[in-house]
Amino acid sequence: MHRTVTELADGRELIYYDSAPGRDRRARDRRPPDRVESAPELRRDPATGDWVAIAAHRQSRTHHPPADSCPLCPSREGRESEIPAADYEVAVFENRFPSLSGPTGRCEVVCFTPDHDSGFADLTQERARLVLDAWTDRTSELSARPGVVQVYCFENRGAEIGVTLPHPHGQVYAFTAVAPRTAKHLAAAAAHRAATGRNLFEDLLAEARAAGERVVLAGEHWTAFVPYAARWPYEVHLYPHRRVPDLTRLTEAERAEFPRLYLDLLRRFDRLFGLPAPTPYVAAWHQAPLTGGDELALHLELFTVRRTADKLKYLAGTESGMEAFMNDVAPETAALRLREAR
């Protein structure tokens, strides 16, 4: 991996990730240096302990622009974008409309490909590996920033999920407070250790591998399985067999195997409903916080809001109001259907 660090016209950082050195990344951002004024605020809900980001400036963020005005495509004559280069492999830049910035953290956009009409599942294994290397690099660099306690890499795909830019991309958040779901993981892991003397996430992986019926696919270093109490109709967790806290601790063998398994998993999701349109999904990397996260395990959680070819899983009153999920698909059935979606 070779990286080139530069700046956009308004001073935001832009980083190109290339599979080899030698690419000319000197193209300048020719847009006016107008920076969006943002002052996100973190507020703690005293009733739950959860942190909520208040980011009112995001009301004016770009929303479903026409393809010829996509801000994530490479720049060309007469159409300048967030990426000045005429082509790129993987590009990462500071979000123009961040949910977190300054003392509240940092938000970055990760563009996987210059091809506007493709998706992560269309990448080669080599390009998927480059994205993994970029995620790892961002985790390492952002973790070293003052005040950052957790780094979160994720991808949202599909208008059904709420994506406002269809160009294939993901994001990286540097949190200055532990995310609510991570806090639940920490509490559950501590209780499991106290009760059994074992690690919760090692036990979850071992149980799924031993039972087999919820395993979707497995390799030498990774296993993808549907969790026992899946919240979403089709939800798969991808774990390395060796417990590590974050992406920076993976071995070369683990990194080398990941692209094949992950691309296989994404393509199964796309075949699941027999539709010409790709399946909407969220792919979320769960990494341990920088302190106090010794019991947590790096893993990726992938899920879709689609439950059938013509029905979506909406968060109804129980889920939205009480965080009490009701799943319409048995996890064992979901795993079977994904295994069959070859």
Rank of each mutant, 00 (worst) to 15 (best):
L14V: 11
G158K: 05
P98H: 04
E254F: 01
A85I: 04
R138N: 11
L42D: 08
R35W: 09
A183M: 08
F93E: 06
D87G: 12
A316C: 12
V92M: 05
A159H: 11
I54Y: 10
W51K: 07
I15K: 03
P166R: 05
R271W: 10
V172Y: 00
A277K: 14
A210D: 12
Q171F: 00
G105R: 06
S101T: 10
E94W: 00
L300N: 07
A183E: 13
L336M: 15
Y281F: 15
W232C: 03
L8S: 03
P280H: 07
P32N: 10
V244K: 00
R342H: 14
D137K: 06
D122I: 08
P331V: 11
H286P: 10
F154Q: 11
P46F: 04
E235R: 09
Y314N: 14
A128N: 06
N327H: 13
P289M: 02
I161E: 04
R243Q: 13
I15M: 08
L186T: 00
E252V: 15
L265I: 07
T4M: 11
A283N: 12
L205C: 07
V151D: 07
P114K: 05
A187D: 12
I83Y: 00
P40E: 05
A283E: 06
R267Y: 02
L290R: 10
R271Y: 09
R129V: 02
A330L: 15
V305T: 11
S99W: 06
Q171V: 01
A316N: 09
D50W: 02
A187G: 02
E155V: 13
A334N: 12
L14T: 04
I161G: 09
A253N: 05
E77Q: 09
R198F: 09
